[in-house]
Design a protein around this nucleic acid. Structure first.
Length: 519
DNA sequence: CGACGGGACGC
DNA sequence: CGACGGGACGC
């Protein structure tokens, strides 16, 4: 495997496995081997000499078979002298041959940060805990859609030490497809999302949760938009208009039309939309579920739409939020909104802790929205128009029932991580007529146990579920086939083997033909 | 102190 | 009918 490409392209395979070492002239290959072999398998020692004079230039390349071996050697030998010498070595990762001798100031960046593919339901907290087994994680980032806050399916993990990144690279589950991340291009590099541990979810209480809107911790007090100009930093705090002034805009509409699940009340809907700065009113017809909201600027309104459109509470009951057509004029006197003012007093401190847009986690609004509704004790059963299932799970006191499904389902079970060998059965899923959110799918399919992943192809009404247990998969078929989820008719069949089988052509990955490819 | 060689399966 | 996803960081 190692020597497949004779012409110099194997030098950096695996990545960062070759060291560039400045050393005293005259050091012999054996001396290098003696000093470095304890870190792993040395594939090559190459002492550089001047082509013409054959003079030793005090440079040696040492190629290890594994990244982690090279990292450990670098860590321990950099600055150390070889026996019989008093001169410390300089040991760094060698550049690739074509990059030559250019010294990159962000060199370390390449050694500690991994780019990984992750399940769509992963949180930063989950990603961090998954990768902590290889060493102390400095920070993690999960990329999210700017509009919806949906996890885009990949992220970054940054370690403090190159060795730990290498161990993760080599040993993490293959489904992460780890790569050493390219350094971020421009200087704005500290943008990485610091996730400051997991502490205050359990005990610190609701208030604390809401106050911690900011990545940097709750440095800003609550009520940014309601409490006027002074901040903890003493600088005047911009109002919502200034803060959202740069939000992408292609409309001058400040008003939203909302279709809410029937059963959601005026008060809670107001609280949801008051999470976005600049809300002036939010007025719901509780009979039809249609609401209108107005914001102080088109930017605010657009931002609110992007954050809350598609928000599902309960699962399978998304809010539909659009910019209202302002050519149709309507009167919404502020005074009508007496319900809102009543609630906004109580919840004002939770709202709108947006500092500047670039530091806001797009997920925050939705997380807080979910918390508001859950904390409010809104019972999903009461929100369902087709509630054939309501109350039928008599034991469902603590367990979340699958209220969105046409029949009762067993309680949710944890999903499992795919490891390249545990895929036991794939299912083919069709949702008619249109489709259903992945959240709903996951909530339904996980209930049979051993679910690895479930998804619909983008823009399609069909997709796949992967199980690590055939029994679990068969139970899913038996139970769900012919039922409906959130009003969508479901077909669930055993999947045919994938059509595109990369059994020929390019290089196969490091795992070779696997069970996965046969399923 | 700072950047790139040598070898050459055997079906 | 309905058959195989997605991959680079708010400049």
């Amino acid at each position: 495997m190692a020597g497949r490409d004779g012409r110099g392209l194997t030098l950096d395979d695996p990545p960062n496995s070759r060291l560039f070492i400045l050393c005293p002239k005259g050091t012999t290959e054996q001396e290098f081997r003696d000093a470095f072999e304890k870190y792993g398998t040395i594939e090559d020692v190459w002492i550089i000499k001047d082509k013409r004079t054959n003079e030793d230039r005090g440079i040696v390349y040492i190629k290890f078979s594994k990244t982690s071996e090279a990292m450990q050697a670098m860590e321990e030998m950099n600055g150390r002298a070889l026996p019989g010498s008093n001169k410390g070595l300089k040991v760094v990762v060698a550049n690739s041959k074509r990059d030559g001798s250019t010294r990159d100031p962000r060199e370390d960046e390449r050694l500690v940060r991994l780019f990984v593919i992750i399940p769509k339901h992963f949180t930063e907290q989950k990603l961090r805990s998954e990768f902590s087994e290889f060493g102390e994680v400095e920070s993690v980032t999960v990329l999210k859609d700017h509009g919806t806050g949906e996890n885009k399916g990949f992220g970054y993990v940054r370690y403090f030490k190159p060795l730990h990144a290498a161990l993760a690279y080599e040993n993490c589950d293959t489904s992460y497809r780890p790569k050493f991340a390219e350094p971020q291009r421009s200087r704005g590099e500290r943008d990485e999302i610091e996730y400051h541990g997991f502490p205050h979810h359990s005990s610190a209480g609701q208030k604390r949760l809401y106050e911690d809107d900011f990545r940097g911790g709750g440095a800003f007090g609550a009520d940014v938009f309601h409490s006027g100009p002074s901040s903890v930093l003493g600088a005047p705090r911009p109002g919502p208009l200034e803060m959202l002034a740069d939000y992408p805009l292609n409309s001058n509409c400040s008003r939203l039309v909302i279709q809410a699940p029937v059963g959601l009340t005026q008060g809670y809907l107001s609280k949801l939309f008051n999470l976005i700065p600049g809300m002036e009113y939010c007025d719901l017809n509780e009979t039809t579920g249609v609401a209108y909201a107005r914001y102080s600027s088109p930017q605010c309104a657009t931002y609110a739409r992007d954050k809350l459109n598609g928000f599902e509470y309960p699962l399978g009951s998304p809010l539909h939020v659009q910019l209202a057509d302002d050519s149709v004029r309507q009167e919404y006197p502020m005074s009508v909104d007496s319900n809102y003012s009543q609630y906004s007093g109580g919840f004002g401190s939770y709202s709108t802790n947006l500092g500047n847009l670039s530091s806001v986690d797009p997920m925050d609004v939705r997380q807080k929205a979910a918390m508001i509704l859950e904390k409010a004790g809104i019972n999903p059963h009461n929100l369902l128009s087709s509630s054939s299932n309501a109350g039928s799970v008599g034991d469902g006191r603590r367990e979340r029932s699958a209220f969105y499904c046409s029949i009762p389902l067993p309680p949710p079970q944890p999903t499992v991580q795919e490891d390249g060998t545990n895929l036991a059965q794939r299912l083919f899923i069709v949702c008619q007529p249109s489709g259903v959110s992945e959240k709903v799918l996951r909530d339904a399919f996980c209930r049979f146990g051993n679910l690895i992943d479930v998804y619909l192809l983008s823009g399609r009404n069909y997709g796949y579920a992967k199980f690590a247990s055939k029994t679990s998969a068969m139970k899913a078929i038996e139970t769900l086939h012919g039922q409906s989820l959130a009003g969508q008719k479901l077909k669930v069949l055993e999947a045919e083997p994938p059509k595109s089988n990369p059994a020929h052509g390019g290089f196969l990955g490091d795992e070779g033909p696997s069970k996965k490819q046969r399923l």
